[in-house]
């Protein structure tokens, strides 16, 4: 599924971290990996960057993934997404360093920009799964609105079944405007969730469903926190003009969740 992976790296990262992540990606059946670094335009540093990436590359010989590297100049997020497109990467893998709230709201974050701009799936690796202690993931959440955006997540959800024992299918809906419509809506949601459960139960040891009412982003955050999920899978709506002033559900989840996020555009 995710054979070719674009992995943007920071030159300050330690070799140990790079190794831990590579072995995690190897478990996710990655075959090719491109270390990618974007420099500020005009400031130079190409040689230093390349030698650092070469060092990473040689250290990973024993892991079993083909590693390449590339250095470019420009706007970081745009370069990452462009490179992913050109290389035909199956996944952009971003380890998210936890910047504090003030920093990220003032400076913006590259992760947020990549999430917004990417045309290929993005894995944002946050606190969980904590690779320093354990590589195994225990449970993941698939957030669905039963619409087009969620349908694109089907294949990745099947695929992750090989690595994760438990799947939680989460639907967050908007309350209908009267009790009768609300009852119909609930029945409809239950039928749909039951269908999804059946669809995925051959791939996971355990499948559960949860249905909530309210703001999607806050309920996703809530559920992920409650069941200590390792990752959450989301489909991104590709609206030409995003209508949400406070940012899309994806952006809000990515910025605040503790688990990893797999985003399917």
């Amino acid at each position: 599924m995710f054979k070719k992976i674009l992995h943007p790296v920071d030159l300050n990262e330690s070799l140990t971290e790079i190794k831990i992540r590579a072995s995690f990606l190897y478990k996710m059946k990655a075959e090719d990996m491109v270390f990618f670094h974007v420099l500020n335009p005009g400031l130079g540093g190409h040689k230093h960057a390349e030698s650092r990436l070469r060092h990473f590359q040689s250290a990973l010989d024993e892991v079993g993934i083909n590693v390449h590297y590339k250095v470019e100049e420009g706007h970081v997020a745009s370069e990452i997404t462009r490179e992913a497109r050109e290389q035909g990467a199956d996944l952009i893998y971003i380890p998210a360093r936890g910047r504090n709230f003030l920093m990220s709201s003032l400076l913006g974050s590259t992760t947020q920009d990549v999430v917004r701009l990417a045309d290929s799936p993005v894995w944002v690796h946050k606190k969980r799964p904590d690779l320093r202690h354990e590589e195994q993931m225990h449970r993941i959440v698939f957030a669905t609105d039963f619409q087009q955006a969620a349908e694109k997540c089907c294949q990745p959800v099947f695929f992750l079944g090989e690595l994760v024992p438990e799947l939680v299918v989460l639907h967050v809906g908007e309350r209908a405007a009267d009790p009768y419509s609300e009852q119909l809506r609930r029945e409809h949601v239950n039928v749909k969730l039951e269908e999804l459960k059946e669809q995925y139960s051959g791939y996971y040891r355990k499948v559960r469903q949860i249905s909530r009412i309210g703001s999607p982003a806050s309920h996703i955050l809530d559920v992920v926190d409650e069941i200590q999920a390792d990752a959450v899978i989301l489909g991104r709506l590709n609206e030409p003009f995003p209508l949400h002033v406070m940012g899309s559900t994806c952006a809000r989840v990515v910025s605040r969740v503790n688990s990893s996020v797999l985003l399917i555009p």
Binding site: D178, Y180, H188, V191
Partner: peptide
Amino acid sequence: RGLSAEAKEGLNSRFSRR
């Protein structure tokens, strides 16, 4: 909210019973 829900999915029609 009520009006936009109605415009989006019709009055109850989207959730018709199976």
